[in-house]
Design a protein around this nucleic acid. Structure first.
Lengths: 189, 189
DNA sequence: TTAAACTGTTGTCATAAGACAACTTTTTCC
DNA sequence: GGAAAAAGTTGTCTTATGACAACAGTTTAA
């Protein structure tokens, strides 16, 4: 049940079996269908999700009704509507499953109890946030200056899984372009 | 000497005077001229900086020789070439002073010693990273979809200090546009 | 103080990308 | 399995922005 999550944690920090067991005991399994909304606009996000199987997407809808993807999370990674989760404010993001998924969910109270009592878990969270920040900065550097064709090449090189796994529409919203533009760029390659 | 830094810390967490004194004792004052390079491309960044006075800018140079700003830091905030500092790899970013500045610098070893021994300092760092991540995500949402004029309005609303304090050229590199485009957009308002 | 360097403005022109629409292909789910 | 919905492709047209250049204004530093 918890093998993947245990591996994820062990991959971040050295941790005793006893602690590991305590940590995982707070996670509850959860199956979703496709397009299931785990956090909607206006809700306060109260869970962190580990993905055993499937794929989630965090996105925001702008004034014109277009959506922008914050990030994707595939198997063996964690995600939540972070801003809402951290600040405990109504979310401006939607967190949604792109495929039928198998998740392990932990509630916010349990999450912070673990963070505050188990240093190795705090370290896991800390590493997640550090990585998330580094990744966001990388995306700013890569997507703010580049032309469309170069953004596409960048993702092909650095995050090829996204292209094989995720719909063009969603990828376009991650690259900051329309789907028709992405389609035309793909044809050019 | 350390008043501003102490206030910065106290603003994040409740902390005893004794601890506060221990924390600040690791920070060394440092004055810079304008355009002084605190971390250059290829160097491994080994310091975190608190800004008492002045302004720093973190940026990267892309293939075409254009530069993109990662973020700015003004008075009473902290900054480093985070990616390099965290991963201990040669930096792709430059960290530079935009004005003559008064800084308090802490070396990486001291920094992590504090993080590992003083929970309240760990919390300060943790909050910094959380905020930095949230801010980066916000920028992705705001700048990836928007047209130039809306990006400019966004900064006017959310980070007006940048516009009054920082050169147009640097602001343009923060917004992901050329300086001539920014100048024309300003004229339109 | 003054020359040099840098910054910002404005113009023209070229081009990448958005908007919209029509159409095809694929996927979904009853 | 098949109808309906969604996703993807491709075309035309428009527009925002980049590239480049000339110039003006400002700052810097010797």
């Amino acid at each position: 049940m918890y093998t993947e999550l245990e591996n994820y944690i062990k991959n971040c920090v050295a941790v005793e079996d006893k602690e590991l067991e305590k940590i995982t005991s707070f996670f509850k399994p959860l199956k979703t269908t496709r397009n299931e909304m785990l956090c909607n606009i206006g809700q306060v996000c109260n869970h962190f999700y580990f993905i055993k199987k499937g794929c989630l997407r965090l996105y925001e809808i702008d004034d014109k009704g277009n959506d922008i993807t914050g990030y994707f999370a595939l198997e063996n990674s964690i995600i939540s509507a972070n801003t809402s989760f951290i600040l405990q404010k109504p979310s401006r993001d939607c967190l949604v499953s792109l495929e039928p998924s198998e998740l392990l969910a932990i509630g916010r109270n349990d999450f912070y109890q673990l963070v505050n009592t188990i240093p190795s878990f705090a370290s896991v969270y800390h590493q997640f946030i550090e990585f998330a920040f580094i990744h966001s900065q990388m995306r700013i550097y890569s997507f703010l200056g580049m032309e469309g064709i170069d953004k596409l090449k960048w993702v092909m090189e650095h995050e090829p899984k996204l292209l094989s796994r995720i719909s063009s529409k969603a990828v376009a919203s991650y690259l900051g372009m329309t789907n028709s533009t992405l389609s035309k760029l793909r044809a050019k390659l």
